[in-house]
């Protein structure tokens, strides 16, 4: 008998003597549940970090409608209609780490908020809820304030899917 055969015979006997079928099923179950829980862990949510003073208590409107206050400078498809939300990307897409930033006025409390328009990238255009409001959009020579830039250039894939509008804090209003 070759060395190989001997090795596998020994291993198989060891497994059958020491392990049980139920034990195997238990292990398999734990692995499946564990693997299922991994996406729930707070990883890869860089753009969610440092969210200051979310205006949830003073929020009104439909996040799937283009006239929702956070979308005042959006130019693209709303992630809310594409399997994501106004502040998260649909599964299977990656949030671009570089983005353009503007401000929108919340009609409920009358205050201006800083909005980060992170694009979601990696699969072809979503095609739902096209929204083009462009408030504060500047020509390409002010690239950091232009929504015509493909901000997916900062992601692994430069293919644009949809846009989010994440509140990252209150705007500073110069005292009069």
């Amino acid at each position: 008998m070759s060395l190989f055969d001997k090795f596998f015979e020994r291993s198989a006997r060891k497994v059958s003597q020491k392990g049980s079928r139920r034990g195997f099923i238990r292990g398999l179950g734990a692995t499946l549940v564990g693997a299922g829980a991994i996406p729930l862990l707070p990883v890869a949510r860089a753009a969610d970090g440092q969210q200051a003073k979310l205006p949830q208590d003073a929020d009104a409107g439909d996040p799937a409608a283009c006239d929702y206050w956070r979308y005042c400078a959006v130019d693209g498809f709303l992630c809310e209609c594409c399997g994501g939300s106004y502040n998260s990307c649909p599964p299977g897409t990656e949030m671009s780490p570089i983005t353009w930033i503007g401000t929108c006025r919340n009609p409920v409390d009358g205050r201006n908020y800083v909005i980060s328009y992170n694009d979601c990238c990696g699969t072809t255009q979503c095609g739902s809820c096209l929204c083009q409001r462009d408030q504060g959009d500047r020509p390409l020579y002010r690239s950091d304030k232009s929504n015509d830039v493909n901000w997916c250039l900062g992601a692994t894939s430069s293919v644009y899917h949809c846009s989010t509008a994440i509140v990252v804090g209150l705007a500073f209003d110069q005292p009069q």
Binding site: A46, Q50, P97, I98, T99, I101, G102, V114, V168, A171
Partner: peptide, 13 residues
């Protein structure tokens, strides 16, 4: 606020 408006978009939060 100015960091958020002019830097954060590329330099990250």
């Amino acid at each position: 606020f100015n960091y958020k408006m002019f830097c954060r978009g590329c330099h990250s939060p």
